[in-house]
Amino acid sequence: MDVVLSPVTEDDLWLFQRFAVEPGLIGLDWGGFRDAQAPVRRFAEDGFLGKDDSRLIVRANAETAGFVMWRSGSFDHLTTYWEIGIALLPEYRGRGIGWRAQAMLTAYLFEHTPVYRIQAATHPENLAEQKSLEKAGFRLEGVIRGSEFRAGQFRDAHLYSRLRDDPAPELGNSSVTGTGFDPVGEPLAE
């Protein structure tokens, strides 16, 4: 499976619009209808490559499969970490794309940003994502009780992390492509 991460283009906006208005498409993370034009405005603002949060498209065998995202966080207001996430279209789930995309994103962020910690959270019932994170080199840290409001009630999450010096998985035939951008949204010098 050839998995590639690349910057969002205008032709990719349909994907974000679908996730905003199709109940169940995003799986357990459905939080209600969202503004379908917000992705268009965000793309016009910074192409989804911002200083504190960004997105890349996941392509599998040259087909758009979904996207990965990262946003900054801090426990002490001094040291930052990235929190990553992924959303794949249903037809691309369970094919080994997710763990590869998350491992690639993690390697990319460790290579291009000075963070020591990258974390990801998932639902206790999302066993597939838990296995995907573990295969991508993440370790379970614990349960975050009552961390999100979903489907009418507060629910727990499982928190995973990978540190800069943790072993990285073998990625095989995978890559991050694109020019003229960096992971924190600053244009690169030509």
Rank of each mutant, 00 (worst) to 15 (best):
residue 25 L to D: 10
residue 179 T to N: 10
residue 115 V to M: 03
residue 85 G to H: 02
residue 25 L to N: 13
residue 190 E to R: 00
residue 110 F to E: 03
residue 129 E to C: 15
residue 186 E to V: 11
residue 147 S to G: 14
residue 95 R to K: 15
residue 110 F to A: 11
residue 85 G to W: 14
residue 147 S to L: 07
residue 80 T to C: 13
residue 105 L to D: 05
residue 113 T to K: 06
residue 185 G to D: 02
residue 31 G to R: 15
residue 35 D to E: 09
residue 134 E to I: 10
residue 118 I to F: 03
residue 103 A to R: 01
residue 101 A to H: 06
residue 104 M to F: 09
residue 56 L to Q: 05
residue 48 F to S: 10
residue 172 G to A: 05
residue 160 Y to T: 06
residue 89 L to I: 08
residue 141 E to C: 14
residue 1 M to P: 06
residue 171 L to H: 11
residue 76 D to V: 10
residue 45 E to A: 15
residue 173 N to V: 09
residue 163 L to F: 11
residue 158 H to C: 01
residue 54 S to W: 06
residue 116 Y to I: 04
residue 78 L to H: 04
residue 5 L to A: 11
residue 34 R to G: 15
residue 1 M to Y: 06
residue 44 A to M: 00
residue 60 A to G: 02
residue 50 G to E: 02
residue 91 E to W: 00
residue 100 R to E: 00
residue 39 P to S: 08
residue 38 A to W: 01
residue 112 H to S: 09
residue 49 L to K: 12
residue 126 N to T: 00
residue 16 F to Y: 09
residue 144 I to C: 01
residue 10 E to L: 14
residue 99 W to S: 11
residue 176 V to N: 00
residue 136 A to E: 00
residue 187 P to E: 04
residue 129 E to M: 15
residue 15 L to E: 11
residue 39 P to D: 12
residue 137 G to C: 08
residue 64 T to W: 05
residue 78 L to S: 07
residue 150 R to Q: 09
residue 128 A to S: 02
residue 31 G to F: 14
residue 105 L to P: 05
residue 41 R to F: 08
residue 23 P to I: 08
residue 130 Q to I: 12
residue 170 E to Q: 03
residue 14 W to A: 09
residue 86 I to Y: 00
residue 161 S to L: 04
residue 155 R to H: 01
residue 64 T to M: 09
residue 77 H to F: 12
residue 7 P to L: 15
residue 101 A to N: 05
residue 46 D to G: 06
residue 115 V to I: 13
residue 43 F to G: 13
residue 131 K to G: 03
residue 36 A to D: 10
residue 15 L to F: 09
residue 36 A to L: 03
residue 108 Y to A: 02
residue 103 A to V: 07
residue 113 T to N: 05
residue 4 V to I: 14
residue 83 E to D: 11
residue 135 K to P: 06
residue 54 S to R: 12
residue 72 S to N: 01
residue 11 D to M: 02
residue 54 S to T: 01
residue 137 G to T: 09
residue 22 E to N: 01
residue 38 A to D: 08
residue 89 L to V: 04
residue 9 T to H: 13
residue 70 W to F: 00
residue 162 R to Q: 02
residue 61 N to W: 07
residue 54 S to K: 13
residue 144 I to D: 03
residue 80 T to A: 14
residue 67 F to Y: 06
residue 99 W to E: 08
residue 149 F to C: 08
residue 110 F to Y: 15
residue 101 A to F: 03
residue 37 Q to A: 14
residue 91 E to F: 11
residue 179 T to D: 10
residue 165 D to E: 12
residue 144 I to R: 11
residue 85 G to E: 10
residue 138 F to H: 11
residue 28 L to V: 01
residue 140 L to P: 04
residue 64 T to Y: 10
residue 61 N to G: 14
residue 120 A to V: 02
residue 189 A to Q: 13
residue 181 F to A: 07
residue 29 D to T: 14
residue 106 T to I: 13
residue 16 F to C: 05
residue 146 G to W: 00
residue 182 D to S: 15
residue 170 E to M: 08
residue 116 Y to G: 04
residue 127 L to V: 14
residue 157 A to H: 09
residue 52 D to G: 10
residue 137 G to L: 03
